[in-house]
Design a binder for these strands. Structure first.
Lengths: 209, 209
DNA sequence: CCGAAGTCGAACACTACTGTTCGAATTGAA
DNA sequence: TTCAATTCGAACAGTAGTGTTCGACTTCGG
């Protein structure tokens, strides 16, 4: 949201409401189609194009606000996950599940953001919530539940990218939104766990194809 | 390349050369910047804009040809990997390494393609080489070296998406091109191997849509 | 109820692209 | 050598967006 009120005067209530409507509509529209025009966003928000530009001087500013909103949402959700009591591994599993829930909400926004504000600024936005994951990975690394043979940042990237891969699969209809959480946990935990040497032909118990 | 010669007459040698130059330049330029204009591509190919349009009627046609070239490259490289003798697990490791090599060559083309021809047609292009991975995963699943508790397609997606994640990390300078192959193998093999007993909850996450 | 803050649609200037057409100049191939 | 294939630059038309300006209208806030 535009925090830069030029002159001290407070913002009127309807302006506040419109900004809210715009950000909400933009979030939805950007998800539906990354290349959506400002005109369409304004229409979706039930607001004039001029009003939109009045609050967000450029397309980039708008998407920036939308991202901030989505990330704040993520940060809040992830921050609410109780990880302090649990062993790092379980905490990570819980975090993954929560992360999926929040990502599932914003799924396609990622694709929109990457081609408008670029991957760098996008990462910058993701930094905060990603930090929670990294902290937890670090904790796990110290107590031996997370592998130490790969760069910490890579493990975080692994989590990050698998989450987004799952989002694409859901969009493509090859995975259900509900099933994704389980699949993610089942894939990610082995990937970040310490490697066990020697596992030739072992077959998992209870294989039901 | 435009295979549709209108009248039986053969194509002249310089035309052939230009087409070659255009596809090569377009491949490079699309990688550098997905939103590159036809004008810039023509310039990079050392060719007039009209000539470009003469061979590729639209931007989409051009990217299509570029993708075809890249994918053919991938298919050839991956097809040359000797997998028949090896156990599925080793074969998979070799395939991952080769896949990384070829992807490293085209890294950012993926991002370009996704926003021009769309994710669907892109997947369509990737289908061929991805099939090699899926076949191998299937083989591994039968002989017990690959986990059977997740949808086959998801495992292929896991490989696919981690490869592209690595590409982004390399671009961002957080990973070296050479180191990526090792990191990928170390991450992917545990992710697709049969799970040890005692993991996660009792539920089997193999629900596809 | 008054004034300022906010909103509206319409129109404008601007930019950047795509794809086309022209005639003139080359160049490969027979 | 000859001719068709191919190339070239330049200019054109068309599209689609961005961001701005205008004057009139509405609504909030005190």
């Amino acid at each position: 949201m535009p925090t830069d009120r030029k002159h001290g005067g407070r913002r009127r209530a309807d302006a506040e409401r419109n900004i809210e409507a715009i950000v909400a509509a933009a979030l939805a529209e950007f998800c539906r189609n990354p290349g959506v025009s400002m005109t369409d966003i304004a229409r979706a928000a039930g607001v004039g194009r001029v009003t939109l530009y009045g609050h967000f001087p450029s397309r980039e500013d708008l998407l920036d606000a939308v991202m901030a909103r989505a990330i704040e949402d993520a940060r809040a959700t992830l921050g609410a996950v109780p990880t302090d009591g649990l062993p790092a591994r379980d905490a990570l599993a819980a975090l993954i599940r929560s992360a999926w829930q929040v990502l599932d909400r914003h799924r396609r926004l990622h694709a929109a953001a990457v081609q408008i504000i670029g991957p760098d600024r996008l990462r910058e936005h993701h930094e905060q919530p990603l930090l929670l994951v990294e902290d937890l990975l670090d904790r796990g690394r110290r107590d031996g539940t997370v592998r130490a043979d790969l760069p910490p940042h890579w493990l975080a990237t692994t989590v990050y990218s698998m989450l987004h891969a799952a989002a694409l699969e859901v969009d493509a209809g090859r995975l259900t939104s509900a099933g994704a959480a389980d699949v993610l946990e089942a894939t990610l935990l082995p990937a970040i766990s310490p490697v066990r040497q020697r596992d030739g032909g072992g077959r998992g118990p209870g294989d039901t194809a």
